[in-house]
Structures are given as structure tokens and as C-alpha cells.
Design a protein around this nucleic acid. Structure first.
Lengths: 138, 138
DNA sequence: ATTGAAAATGATAACGTTTTTCAATAACGG
DNA sequence: CCGTTATTGAAAAACGTTATCATTTTCAAT
């Protein structure tokens, strides 16, 4: 049986490998858009019907802690999660189809530094999300 | 009785002027930090004890619709609201004391335009929030 | 001032999501 | 294979938010 890299990472963090975690992890890893816990629950049960909703919540929490997924903030609600390859990234969401695209915010650093200087804040985290229409939907 | 400018705005939008709305509006207008509905409820009842929680939700919704307040997204939750003088603005939140500072994101426009070009998206909205320590707390 | 239609209110109940509890199960080092 | 310990899923509880509805209040028309 092939081992999904996310499971290896979970294992290295001290988590045991279970069917439930495999189902949740693979559902998240394979999805190109943000998913709510309930959506994950429904999708992951196709691979592992015995899965419980509570375990979905716990596994999402674990995956977020490791940095494999990140929370998505949207006007309608902020319960959704999406893959975060390489840690926290900036998101660009299509308002039509829900597709999520990740982008680099290199130029953001100087802006943030300037803001910190102007305001006197020591800035520790930043969080940028864009909304619009993807190339297919416009 | 002096009329708070927010109440005038509510009135112009077709809302009637009530004690409940006055209590909620003034609570929000006078707060320098983000408040959850429950916090607003507790604070506004000091001025108007008969206030109901449901009315808080409805009034916050109205104020958000007019653009006098905006929702604040934080790692711990996204239920809080804060004043938004001059419509939606960018937020800088102190992780220690909760103080909120608004800032201009002028330089952001070119970055966003560049992202849109690279990704093929037609970008319609953007959210930027920074977290850190304010000058008093660092 | 008085009136009356429509908006607004607050108490209660309903709702959906998230968390807690707990006995049973499964993982995995020894 | 065994025993410890993490993990699980079901059920219940807790939580925040929304819907319902009879009552009250606002405010424009008188």
C-alpha cells in the first residue's frame, strides 16, 4: 500500500496512522478548492464509510497544526479549509466556481515593513486573500 | 438630544430610530477594538438594559450593510466587528491588547493588478489584515 | 395632539455547527 | 502476541446564530 506523504508527516509528528486519518488527509490533499468539515465528512466517507464527523474535526485540527492545510476566510463563513503546500500561503478565490489559486506575495514584504514603521506595530503575521473570477468563469 | 451621525445615516437608509439601535450604534462607534455580538450586547445594555440579543445581531447586520462597521477575521474566530469609517479598510490588530489600527494600502493596488495579470483572474475584492504587537504592548 | 399602518422589538424556540464525554477499538513498540 | 496508550465513533451537551410571533414603538398623515 502506497503511503501518502501527508500520512508520513502525521506519523513523524507522533500521530498514529489510521484509516480515518488517511481518508480525511487524502480528501483534503486531492481537493483544489476549499472544503467545510461537513463536505470533507461526506467525501471522505466514500473511501471510509465508518468515519465519524468528530474525527474529521480532530484530523483537520491536526493537519492545520502541522501546516498542511489552512483555514479559508470568506464572506459567507470561515469554516472551510484548503491545502497549504509549503505552509501558509496567500489565496485567490473564484467567486463563481470556488476554485482556489495560491500566489506568492513577495512584494508584500516591503509594504508590510512600511506599515509597521508608520504605525509603530511589530508585525508578526499577515493575511491576504483576493476574490474574483477565474479565467474560466469570467 | 444630540443625534449621533450613525443614527442619521441609519435614518437616511430607511431605518427607524430606536433606543436599541442607538445603544448598539454608539457602542460600536465608541469602541477602538473589535467586539463580538455578545460583547456588544453586554456593553450596550449598560445604556439600554431592555436590549435583546437578537436586536444586536440585526443592528450589526444593518450597520455592516451600510458600511459603518466591518467584520474582523481572526485565528480564534471571525464573529467580531469593528468600526469602518469610510467603508472597508485594512486592519492591523494587536495580538496582546486587541487594539485595532486602520491603515491605507495604497501600494497594494499595483501588487493586486500584477497578481491578476499573472493568474488570469479578474480580481474584485481583497482582504488584508495584519497581526502583531502595538507600540504599547511590545 | 391623535391616529393608524408598518417597522421594530424581545422572549422563546428552533437550528446547525462544534465540543465534550466515554466506553470500545485499533495501533504499534516491546 | 501482548499491553499500553492513542484513537475512534456515538451520543449528548454546549455554543452561536436564526426564525417565529405577539407586543410595542416609530413616524407620517391627519
Amino acid at each position: 500500500m502506497t503511503q501518502h506523504p501527508w500520512l508520513t508527516q502525521l506519523n513523524e509528528q507522533g500521530y498514529r496512522l489510521t484509516e480515518a486519518r488517511r481518508a480525511v488527509a487524502e480528501t483534503m490533499a486531492d481537493s483544489g478548492r476549499a472544503l467545510t468539515p461537513i463536505e470533507v465528512y461526506d467525501m471522505a466517507r466514500e473511501a471510509y464509510p465508518a468515519l465519524g464527523l468528530v474525527t474529521v474535526y480532530r484530523t483537520l485540527e491536526a493537519l492545520e497544526g502541522i501546516g498542511l492545510i489552512q483555514r479559508v476566510h470568506q464572506p459567507e463563513g470561515c469554516q472551510a479549509f484548503i491545502t497549504a503546500p509549503g505552509g501558509h500561503q496567500h489565496l485567490l478565490l473564484c467567486q463563481q466556481c470556488g476554485r482556489a489559486t495560491l500566489f506568492e506575495g513577495d512584494d508584500l514584504e516591503s509594504l508590510i515593513q512600511s506599515i509597521g514603521h508608520k504605525t509603530g506595530y511589530q508585525i508578526k503575521e499577515h493575511w491576504l486573500q483576493l476574490f474574483g473570477l477565474c479565467s474560466d468563469c469570467r
